[in-house]
Design a binder for these strands. Structure first.
Length: 566
RNA sequence: CGGAAUGUAGCCCAGCCCGGUUAAGGCGCCACGUUCGGGACGUGGAGAUCGAAGGUUCAAAUCCUUCCAUUCCGACCA
């Protein structure tokens, strides 16, 4: 590609809306332009990168036996009503009406459509297993779109769905997809981690998220450096603490804590650490109010609580708190509380602790289970923290941040049962298909890759996904005939060799060309100047190199191809 | 959805409190000249219904009201 025939649209200053490095750089480099909240145009340069990511994903999906399809972005409501998700999916789904006032949505995902496809096409176990995938634009009306294409409303996703005659086949494909995803992210040149994930309301046995590691990631990951344990914090088990509860040493007594409502305030007012306090969270779930006890310095894991209670938990309203405890939030405690009480494992071993007194402005101190209140039901309710023992017993957990770019899970028969996607097995029996589902956030990968690969000059993308693999920078292309001829010849030769090269033939000063090459993420550049041409040489410099190296013009193409491809 | 903030040229922004000439500057863009291996310099130029609609006033970018858009924070509080 010649720069004069391309469209480089770089900015010295990033628009004020961009917070994240990847967002700023994508805007500055002219990868994307914003149309509306969570809506972006992929510019020619950014699209090259997106297409390279897509190509790798496609190749690996094909290798894994996937069959590419392209399903409609707009989907009729009836399908979603079959699975109950028309209501369940909530405001994230963009619903639209056609001219006949019939309801549709802009697809946020395609389980219903693909299951419908399978039930129409598949009759016999002989046709299974089968995997369809597509690379498609989705729309999810996010509460808060942010970070550019990282959390956009409209985005490009690869979604694959597999259909099986039995669980063993599903599990086999699941393992293949795990390997496939690992290969995709490795080929993309990204540092990533596969982590055990929550299966959510869908249930089923297996689910893994693939995270690109970056400090700016929105997800917390717990991992053990001494083993291969890694899990989303939502799922990571907080194991019971070692040792037994200490014998009570204090009598329970009431302490006035006027106006102190938060753990921090109460702890500092009473001269305790937050870890000596028990906080009492009242949550509502179908059959009433439940009190959850956590150590003051720990945080509730709502996913764990939801699993324990059998449904999603909601924090009780202030009125409900008052009705159940007789006081406002901030002074609630388990002593004398007449609701179901569940204590986190780490609370169960506390003694002489502090908790709310169910009386505005008062707390109990020196409280002990078994003496001042009944022994509680015990469960794992909290988020793990750094330093917790690893659930596999092989060391201590650390926490890091990740950007979720892939998610695979075993759907089992949730959709096939709801939508009667059945087949005849070898015995002639009708069976629902086992299903798996495998997603990759293609457009998000571009942002995630930049988040992981940048410096103060711009992007330092892995060459597998860089918009060009080499940039030719001729000094004085428009004025110096010798430079121009050398540049044109090299360009033609490299193009003939299939190298993705950008020739900067614009009438720009050297500094401008260098700065643009670095900003837009070209991983290597070749400078052609009159000075080195005089000695029959080019100058080559990879993005990370501190200095350029001389390359003889003679045989230069071969050397470059070797260097860039090999 | 709750809280906060911001909307002035393609981009970054000053001016707004305290209303009053032609709305300032930088980047970018166009022309000419000088420059030409790290985002050059000079001169000239184009480009703004000051987010929108109402209102107050002799006079509104500036004050008031409503709306819209965008961004940030929160949705973990016991």
């Amino acid at each position: 590609m010649r720069a004069s025939g391309f469209f480089l649209s770089t900015l010295k200053e990033a628009p004020a809306e961009a917070e994240l490095v990847s967002h700023r750089l994508m805007l500055r480099a002219g990868y994307i332009r914003r149309l509306g909240s969570g809506l972006y145009t992929w510019m020619p340069l950014g699209l090259r990168v997106l297409r390279k990511v897509e190509a790798i994903v496609r190749e690996e999906m094909d290798r894994a036996g996937g069959l590419e399809v392209l399903m409609p972005a707009v989907q009729p409501a009836e399908l979603w009503q079959e699975t109950g998700r028309w209501e369940q999916f909530g405001p994230q789904m963009l619903k639209i009406l056609d001219r006949h006032d019939r309801e549709f949505c802009f697809g946020p995902t395609h389980e219903e459509v693909v299951t419908d496809l399978a039930r129409r096409e598949v009759r016999s176990y002989r046709q299974l297993p089968l995997m369809f995938y597509q690379i498609q634009t989705k729309f999810r009306d996010e509460i808060r779109p942010r970070f550019g294409v990282m959390r956009a409303r409209e985005f490009v996703m690869k979604d694959g769905y597999s259909f099986h005659a039995d669980l063993a086949s599903l599990e086999a494909t699941y393992r293949v997809m795990y390997e496939t995803y690992s290969r995709v992210f490795t080929r993309l040149g990204l540092r990533f981690r596969a982590v055990a994930a929550d299966t959510g309301a869908i249930g089923g046995s297996g689910s893994h998220e693939f995270h690109v590691l970056a400090d700016s990631g929105e997800d917390a990951i717990a991992f053990c450096p001494d083993s291969d344990y890694a899990a989303n914090v939502e799922l990571a088990e907080a194991v019971a603490p070692d040792g037994k509860r200490a014998v009570p040493g204090q009598a329970m007594h009431k302490v006035a804590t006027p106006g102190k409502r938060s753990i921090e305030d109460v702890a500092s007012a009473m001269g305790h650490e937050p870890s000596q306090l028990v906080k009492t969270l009242l949550v509502e779930c179908g059959d009433g109010i439940v009190a959850l006890l956590l150590r003051g310095d720990h945080q509730l894991n709502e996913v764990k609580a939801g699993k324990l209670l059998g449904q999603e938990v909601r924090f009780a309203s202030e009125a409900a708190v008052r009705a159940a405890s007789g006081c406002a939030p901030g002074s609630v405690g388990p002593v004398g509380l007449r609701v179901r009480v569940v204590a986190d494992r780490s609370v169960a071993v506390m003694s002489d602790f502090v908790c709310g007194a169910n009386e505005d402005g008062f707390h109990w101190s020196g409280v002990n289970f078994g003496r001042d209140l009944p022994e509680p039901e015990v469960a794992d309710l909290r988020n793990v923290v750094a330093g917790d023992p690893s659930p596999d017993g092989r060391g201590r957990l650390e926490l890091c941040r990740g950007i979720e770019v892939g998610h695979i899970f075993q759907l089992r028969t949730k959709y096939s049962v709801a939508m009667q996607a059945t087949f005849l097995d070898e015995q002639g029996q009708t069976q629902p298909m086992e299903m798996g589902c495998y997603g990759i956030g293609v457009s998000r990968i571009v942002a995630a890759a930049i988040e992981q690969n940048f410096d103060d000059r711009g992007m330092t993308l892995p060459s597998a996904i860089a918009p060009f693999t080499l940039g030719i920078v001729p000094i004085g292309y428009r004025k110096n005939e010798r430079v121009r001829e050398a540049a044109d010849r090299l360009y033609a030769d490299l193009v003939a060799q299939g190298v993705d090269v950008l020739l900067d033939d614009r009438d720009e000063r050297a500094g401008v060309m260098f700065a643009d090459m670095e900003l837009i993420g070209v991983p290597a550049r070749l400078v052609i100047g009159d000075k080195t041409l005089a000695t029959g040489e080019f100058e080559f410099q990879a993005r990370g190199d501190s200095e350029a190296q001389r390359v003889p013009v003679e045989g230069g193409v071969t050397w470059l191809v070797q260097r860039l491809v090999g």
